[in-house]
Amino acid sequence: MHRRDFLAGSTVAAAAGLALTPGMAQAMERVGGEAGSTDRSLTGDFLDLTKPEGNREAWARLLGNTDTKSTKYGFAEGIIQGVRPNEALRDLVGFTMVSAARLLPHEDGVGYRKVLREIGFYTDLKTGEILTEWENPYLGETVKVVPIANDPFNHTITNFYPEPPNYGGLNREKPPQIPLMLDFRRRGGMLNLFSHINLFYPNALQPGEWPRESSGEFNRVTETFLYFIDWDAMQDPSITSVEYDGTWSRVTPWLPWMLMGPSEGHCVYQTFMGAVDSIDRLPNPDTVDYIRVNHPKYLDAPETWEEPSLSSLEWYAREQTPAPLPPSGEIPTAPRAELPQWWQRMKAARQGAGDGGG
Rank of each mutant, 00 (worst) to 15 (best):
H2L: 07
R3S: 13
R3F: 06
R4T: 12
D5I: 01
F6Y: 08
A13F: 11
A13S: 11
L20D: 08
P22F: 10
M24C: 03
M28C: 12
M28T: 03
E29N: 11
G33P: 03
E34N: 05
E34L: 08
G36T: 06
R40W: 05
R40S: 15
D45V: 13
D45W: 13
F46G: 05
L47K: 00
L47T: 02
P52H: 02
E53T: 14
A58L: 08
A58P: 01
W59C: 04
W59E: 03
L62F: 04
G64Q: 03
K69D: 07
G78I: 11
V83S: 08
N86I: 05
A88K: 13
T96E: 11
L103P: 00
G109K: 02
G111Q: 00
G111M: 00
E118T: 01
E118D: 08
F121M: 09
T127G: 09
I130Q: 04
L131Q: 02
E141L: 10
T142Y: 04
K144Q: 12
V146S: 07
P147D: 14
N150A: 10
F153R: 01
N154Q: 14
T156M: 06
N159P: 01
P162T: 05
P164H: 06
Y167C: 12
Y167V: 06
G169P: 01
Q177K: 08
Q177Y: 05
P179D: 06
M181G: 04
R185Y: 04
R187S: 09
G189M: 09
G189S: 06
G189Q: 03
L193E: 03
I197C: 01
N198C: 11
L205K: 00
Q206E: 15
P207Q: 12
P207S: 10
S214T: 02
S215L: 03
E217R: 14
F228G: 02
F228L: 10
I229K: 00
A233Q: 07
P237D: 09
T240I: 04
V251L: 14
P253M: 12
W257M: 14
M258E: 08
M260F: 07
G261Q: 02
P262F: 06
S263G: 12
S263K: 13
H266R: 13
Y269I: 03
G274Y: 10
V276D: 01
P285D: 12
D286L: 07
D286C: 05
T287I: 10
V288K: 01
R292H: 14
R292S: 09
N294S: 12
Y298M: 10
P302I: 09
P302D: 08
E303K: 15
W305P: 00
P308L: 07
S309P: 10
S311W: 02
L313G: 01
R318Y: 14
E319L: 13
A323W: 07
P324G: 09
L325F: 02
I331Q: 04
P332M: 10
P335D: 12
R336H: 09
R336K: 13
E338V: 10
P340M: 09
W342Y: 15
R345F: 13
K347I: 14
A348Q: 15
A348S: 11
R350H: 09
R350T: 10
G356V: 11
G357R: 14
G358H: 14
G358L: 15
